[in-house]
Simulated scan of single mutants.
Amino acid sequence: MALSLDIDLLRSFVMIAEAHSLSRAAERIGRTQSALSQQVRRLEEIVEQPLLQRTGRGVLLTYQGERLLNHAQRILRHHDEAMAELSGKGLSGTLRFGCPDDYAAVFLPHLLRGFASQHPQASVEVVCAPTPRLLEQIDRHALDLALISLAEGSDKAVIRREPLVWVGCPGTGAADFAPLPLALSQPDTLDHLAACNALRALGREYRIAYASSSLAGLIALVRSGQAVAVLTQTAVPADLQILAGDAALPVLPSVGIALRFGQGQPTPLVDALAEHIRQLLPSL
């Protein structure tokens, strides 16, 4: 009898692939690493191919694993849509959601995939921009909901806190530069303000080498070795270096992550996404 792909095995496999770690995936879905390892072995037996390669920093997908991931994501999407339609569950409609680039790169895939499985008939339009620009769009009624950054010390329903860190190209340090070249977001953003205020307090000379709302642009300049950036710790790419303990750099504050609703009474769909984010974001 031909073997078939089990939905539960595929769901665990996709979670591992997204987390790049058995331990993180196990925490997110409430299972042990041993149980997930057994599921991966069972899936590998079914497809008769190795799917994961374990490294010192987590797990990587093999070529066969990458191919299966594409199929698994489509299978799960169609499965969840069918279940929601047949059961009569799930909300429909469209909402406009704002999110800063650094959070979008790390958190959005998990947040939106989970929300889509619960409400497959819903449509989410995503706008990526720095927090000040998102707040402007909230005020203009252009967004229904936004994930924003708040300064350290704010207690306005913070869902998660993220430390700001200095980031540089491996092999370089702040002492290599005079003045210190910075790659920062726009002047009214928290990373820009925190970096400049901390350096001025330390008496350290600096210059703005690059200022933009583009996270990709900031990271590209850091990769070139021409500047140091300030990012939330979770958004630091694996090929860049957190400059922790560098005596030439001051300690930076953390930021809080919170939700801001658009004007007027939130729709049930907006409330559902907000609650989904509150439940899932702290564990990502």
Rank of each mutant, 00 (worst) to 15 (best):
G153N: 05
L180A: 13
A142I: 14
D188I: 15
E205T: 13
Y206G: 06
A146F: 10
L150Q: 02
F177Y: 06
Q118L: 12
A198K: 03
G225A: 14
A151L: 09
D139N: 14
H119G: 11
S214K: 04
V165P: 02
I208L: 08
A220W: 04
L150I: 04
V165G: 00
D155V: 14
R161C: 13
G203P: 04
P120N: 06
C128F: 03
E152N: 01
Y206N: 01
H119C: 14
E162M: 13
L164N: 02
R223I: 12
S149G: 13
T172L: 06
D188G: 11
R223W: 07
A227P: 12
F177S: 02
V158G: 07
L111Y: 01
G217H: 03
H192K: 11
L180Y: 04
T131R: 00
P132S: 04
L147G: 00
A195D: 07
A211E: 14
D144M: 05
L202V: 00
Y206P: 08
L199P: 05
Q137W: 08
L150R: 10
G203R: 08
S149P: 02
R133T: 01
V126P: 06
S214Q: 07
V127R: 06
R200A: 10
I208C: 04
L145G: 07
T172E: 00
A201R: 10
K156P: 04
A183S: 13
L218H: 04
P170Q: 03
K156M: 14
A129Y: 06
I138C: 10
W166T: 12
V158Q: 04
T189N: 11
A211I: 04
P163L: 04
A198L: 10
G171T: 09
D155G: 15
R223H: 05
V124F: 00
T131D: 01
A122F: 09
A129K: 11
A227N: 05
R204P: 05
A129I: 03
P181F: 13
S212I: 07
H110V: 08
S117G: 14
A195I: 02
S224P: 06
S123P: 00
A195M: 00
F107C: 07
A122Q: 03
H110L: 11
H119K: 15
E125Y: 09
G203L: 10
A178V: 03
E136L: 14
P170H: 03
C169V: 04
I138N: 04
G114F: 01
L164C: 01
H110F: 12
E125V: 11
A122V: 08
A216F: 11
H119A: 12
P179Q: 10
F107G: 01
R113V: 08
